[in-house]
Amino acid sequence: MKPRFGILSAAAVFLLFATDMHYAAFAVEPSEVLANPVLEARARAISSELRCLVCQNESIDESNASLAHDLRVLVRKRLLAGDSNEQVKEYIVARYGNYVLLKPPFIEETYVLWFGPLILLLGATAAIILFYRRRTGQSSEPTPLTDEERRSLSLLLSKSDEKEEAR
């Protein structure tokens, strides 16, 4: 199940569409609900993947706009007529275009969208492998201090000890 109606404010929000919101809790009206719970569940799932065209970024399942209502009823009608989920979506897409799909279809225009995370992942993995490769031969364990370093260090530490005492 997907979140049905989303408002989280990421900033102090000035809610322009506030009047819609009160009703939004009741986007789906009891009269629309199908008697068959399996079909109804399918209808809800489909609705939540279809964008309400007149709203600001809501699915038809979340919106109380009149068009959203009509489309919900239509979705249920198509289901009762025996359409599969895909057929119902195709029916709506044929009329309103891919814009209605909240899950963008896998087409040329969305290759970057769908492959983007994978490409990033592969790129980053490659970069990391390269990162380790270039470091091979260098041990992660430090070599012990040379005598020379030891001498300088004791000089340095004694200096700071002096200062400690000076405090």
């Binding site: 364990e141 430090p142 070599t143 012990p144 201090l145 370093e149 260090l153 340095l156």
Partner: peptide
Amino acid sequence: DAARTEIHRRMLSAA
């Protein structure tokens, strides 16, 4: 010991 060596070296480098 390893950690100390590293820090010592950083001290030297800083100095």
